[in-house]
Design a protein around this nucleic acid. Structure first.
Lengths: 342, 342
DNA sequence: CGCCTCCGTGCAATCGAAGGCGCATCGTGG
DNA sequence: CCACGATGCGCCTTCGATTGCACGGAGGCG
C-alpha cells in the first residue's frame, strides 16, 4: 500500500495559516521570525511529517547536495573505509554520497568523469588514489566549478584540495625498524610504475638505507604492482639472491602476503629466516600467520577531514580552513619481524 | 576558471529557433518529430554542450533517478563487488547510485532508513544481507512506494524483490566433498545468531552429514560470528576434542583463516592433519597458505540482476521480469583439503 | 498627533524541464 | 479547388521550494 503523496510546503502553509515564505523561513532557520508563528509552523510540519523535496530545493537554490566519490581503486577495504569516514560527516548534513568508480586504464576516463560532473553537477567530489594523482582530473573539476579534494600519499595540491598521508616518512620509519633489528640486506618490493605512492614508498626506503650508511643495492629492489602475485614473483627473485636478504619491505600488504606465501613454499620460517613488513594494515595483515608488521594510515580520519573540507564553511571566508591536510601513519608491530640471529 | 553557467533548454530552443517543447521532444526521443528539426536541435545541443538539469527533470517528472544501496555489512569486498556490479548496469542508464550504510545494532535503524527514504525518495533501493533479512525494512519500502530488491542467502521475498544464492545447497556440496575425501569427523563453525545465512549454511552441513549416514555430533558444531577471532576460538575448542576432527567447514573465509591460524599455532599441517573449507571466496582465501578451498557465490552477477530488476522495464508490463532470482555457488578447490590418511 | 522607520509577513516571480491543449500546416480524396 | 484528417509544433501551466519586493502594523521622534 503506497502512500498517496508527500505533503508539500503549500500544505504546511495552508494548515498553519501562513504563507509559503514563512514556512520556508522556519525551515531555513531565518533569525528574523516571530516565536509564535515559528512554533505553530513547526507543529504543523511535525504533524504532517513534512519533508522538503530535495529536487525542488536544488532547483530553486541552483545547487544540489550531492558529494561524489571518484575512484578506480582495487582495494575494497580502503574504498569502504573512505565511504564510512565520509558518511560519518555527511550523516549530520543534508548531503548524500554518490559513488562513481572509473577505469584507470580507459582512454575515455576523463570524458567519463566530465560527463558525470556535467550531468550531476555535484556540490563536491572526493578523488581517491591513484587517480587522485591525475592533475587533469583536478583541473576538470576546477574548470566546472566543482569543489574537490584529492587523497594522496604525499601533498599534491593546495591544502584546501587535498588530504595526504606521509608515506615516505612512514616507510622510512619501518625500514629503520628493520635496521635497528640488525637487518642489513633488506629487499624492497616496489609499487607499480606511475604511482605516486610507489615512488614515495621507494624514497622512504632509500632514505632509511642511506641514513644508516648502508649501501643501496639495485638487486634488492624489485618491481611489483600492488597485487598478490607480483609479491610472489618479487619474492622468487629476492630469495634467489645469494646471499639472501634477511628482511623485505613490501609496498603494500597484499604483496607482503605474496612474499610470505613464497617464503613458506620454500620452507623458510617467518620471521626467523625472513622478516617482512607490509603497508596499509588491511584486515589481511592481522589474519596472516604470522601476523604482519605493517604501516597503518588513518584512512577514515582522512576521509572525514576531506568531507569536512568539501561541505565545510560554505558561506564563510574560505581563506581559513580548520581541517588538517597532513596525517601521520604509524608502524603496527606484529610478529613478522625478528632480530637477525647472525 | 569557472564556466559561468550551464546552458538551459531555453538557450537551445532560442538558438535552434524552436520552442522548448520541441527540444524536450528531441531529448526524450518522441517519435512524432520532423527529421530536419530534430537534426538542427541536436546540432545546437552538441554545439552548446547542453546537458539537461537532473533536478529540474526530477521535479517535473515527479520522480528521480537515484538508486540507494542500503547495507550494514562488515565485508568490504562484498559491498564493493555489489557496487561494481550495480554500476555496470546503471552506467548505461541515467541512474546514479547513492550509498547508505546503517548500523545494524542501532535501535533507530528503521527510523534512519525511513528518513533517508523520505528525504530522497529514491527510485529504488538495494538491500544487502544481513539487514536484507529484516522484513520491517522491506515493508517500509513498500509502504513508501520505493522499489526494492533484497539480496539474501536463500529466497526471502517474491522474485521481483530479491536475488538469492543457495547457501544450503552450496555448503552441502562442500561438506560432501570432505566426506568423499574420507573425512568422518567434520567440524562446523557457525555464523552468528540471527543470521539467515548462518542458518542456511548449518542446514547444508547437517544435510550432508545425514545423507552420508554419519552421526550428527553436537560437539563438532561450535558458535562463531563471522569474525577472524571467533574462528580462532572455535578452532581452539574443536582441536581440543579427542579424537580431533580431521576437517572443518567454517561458515566464512575469515573464520576459516582463524581456524588455519590456530592450526598453525598448534603445529598442525594443513591440509595433511586438518582440512579446511571456507565460504565467500574473498581475496584472503587465495592468499592464505595453503590457499583455501572455499565456496564462491556470484556477487557481481547477482548485483547486476538486482540493478536490472530495480530499473528494468519501467513502463512495460511488470508481470514479466526476465531477470533470474536464484544463483548457484560453486566450490573452488584449492590446497586446504586433502584425503584422510587414515 | 502625525509621519517615518523598522520589523514581520505575504504576493508573485523564478529556477529548468515536461506535457496538455490547441493551432498551423501539409497531404489526400472528393 | 476545397474540405477534412493527420501530424508537427508552440503557448502556457505545472512541479516544490526560494526570494525580491512591497505592504501593513507598531513604535519612536518631532
Amino acid at each position: 500500500m503506497k502512500r498517496s503523496s508527500q505533503p508539500t510546503i503549500n500544505d504546511v502553509a495552508r494548515l498553519a495559516g501562513v504563507s509559503k515564505k514563512t514556512v520556508s523561513r522556519v525551515i531555513n532557520q531565518s533569525p528574523l521570525l516571530n516565536g509564535d508563528t515559528r512554533k505553530r509552523v513547526e507543529e504543523v510540519i511535525a504533524e504532517l511529517g513534512y519533508v522538503p523535496n530535495p529536487q525542488a530545493r536544488a532547483l530553486a537554490l541552483r545547487r544540489n547536495f550531492l558529494i561524489g566519490l571518484i575512484h578506480d581503486n582495487p582495494n575494497a577495504q580502503m574504498v569502504l573505509n573512505v565511504q564510512q569516514g565520509m558518511l560519518e560527516v555527511l550523516r549530520d548534513t543534508e548531503f548524500e554520497l554518490i559513488v562513481h568508480p572509473v577505469n584507470r586504464g580507459s582512454p575515455t576516463m576523463l570524458e567519463d568523469v566530465g560527463q558525470f560532473l556535467e550531468r550531476q553537477r555535484p556540490f563536491g567530489v572526493m578523488i581517491l588514489p591513484p587517480i587522485s594523482e591525475n592533475d587533469h582530473l583536478a583541473a576538470l573539476c576546477a574548470d566546472l566549478g566543482v569543489r574537490y579534494v584529492r587523497m594522496g600519499s604525499a601533498p599534491l595540491d593546495e591544502a584546501a584540495h587535498m588530504v595526504a598521508s606521509n608515506d615516505r616518512e612512514a616507510v622510512r620509519g619501518a625500514v629503520q625498524h628493520l635496521i635497528e633489528c640488525g637487518h642489513r640486506r633488506i629487499g624492497l618490493v616496489l609499487g607499480p610504475h606511475g604511482f605516486r605512492s610507489a615512488v614515495e614508498r621507494q624514497k622512504g626506503y632509500e632514505e632509511a638505507i642511506e641514513r644508516a650508511g648502508l649501501p643501496l643495492q639495485r638487486t634488492l629492489i624489485v618491481q611489483g604492482d600492488y597485487k598478490f602475485e607480483s609479491g610472489m614473483r618479487a619474492a622468487e627473485q629476492l630469495l634467489d639472491l645469494a646471499p639472501r636478504p634477511t628482511a623485505v619491505f613490501a609496498s603494500n600488504d597484499e604483496m607482503a602476503a605474496g612474499v610470505l606465501h613464497v617464503a613458506r613454499q620454500r620452507g623458510l620460517n617467518v620471521p626467523q629466516d625472513l622478516s617482512i613488513i607490509g603497508f596499509d594494515d588491511t584486515p589481511i595483515a592481522s589474519h596472516l600467520w604470522p601476523p604482519l608488521t605493517t604501516v597503518r594510515w588513518p584512512i577514515a580520519t582522512m576521509a572525514r577531514a576531506a568531507a569536512l573540507k568539501l561541505v565545510g564553511n560554505e558561506g564563510g571566508a574560505d581563506g581559513e580552513d580548520g581541517e588538517a591536510s597532513l596525517f601521520v601513519s604509524t608502524l603496527i608491530r606484529r610478529a613478522s619481524v625478528a632480530p637477525t640471529t647472525g
